[in-house]
């Protein structure tokens, strides 16, 4: 067992974990932060995306001990009080979800994407950057719209399958 200290959503959290414990297991099991989901568990689907030191990573493919000393933000850490984060609000406004399972990962990926690209985002870039997030309901259409809206980027001129 190894002692880890990870700042999660701004609060310093301590725990004792087996070295093989995945970051997502620590978040869900030790801290009860079950907003971060496990989908495929093989780093394909992105349901487990969180931010480690400000960057989107797949928490099913990182050990908790690797994250010791780092700052982690999960979906629970985005909103301020009752006010949704702008990306969360955009997902609600554009109905960027169907079953909702992939949504926490989609939103964490979207926040990271918008941090890097800002309002220069376009539809093609959003779709390319969603490479590592799978929506099994295939609800990408409204997810893309929500991300473009939250980025303050222009919506595509003609959207297929409206």
């Amino acid at each position: 067992m190894t002692d880890v200290t990870i700042t999660v959503n701004g609060r310093e959290m301590k725990g004792s974990v087996e070295d093989r414990t995945l970051l997502v297991q620590f978040l869900r099991g030790n801290l009860g932060l079950t907003g971060t989901h496990v989908g495929c568990d093989t780093s394909q689907c992105g349901a487990c995306v969180v931010h480690v030191d400000g960057k989107a990573v797949k928490s099913c493919t990182m050990l908790a001990v690797q994250a010791s000393g780092s700052s982690v933000t999960t979906i629970e850490g985005l909103a301020s009080g009752a006010d949704l984060h702008p990306v969360q609000a955009a997902f609600r406004e554009h109905h960027g979800l169907q079953c909702g399972y992939c949504t926490p990962g989609m939103i964490m990926t979207a926040v990271d994407m918008i941090q890097r690209h800002g309002s220069s985002l376009d539809e093609e870039t959003v779709r390319e950057e969603l490479d590592g997030n799978i929506c099994r309901c295939t609800g990408y259409h409204n997810i893309v719209k929500a991300i473009l809206s939250a980025a303050g980027a222009s919506q595509p001129q003609s959207i297929a399958a409206e």
């Binding site: 992105g46 995306v49 960057k55 797949k58 950057e129 590592g132």
Partner: peptide, 9 residues
Amino acid sequence: IGDPAVRHM
């Protein structure tokens, strides 16, 4: 390579 989250690591 991979996807954005993979490229960060």
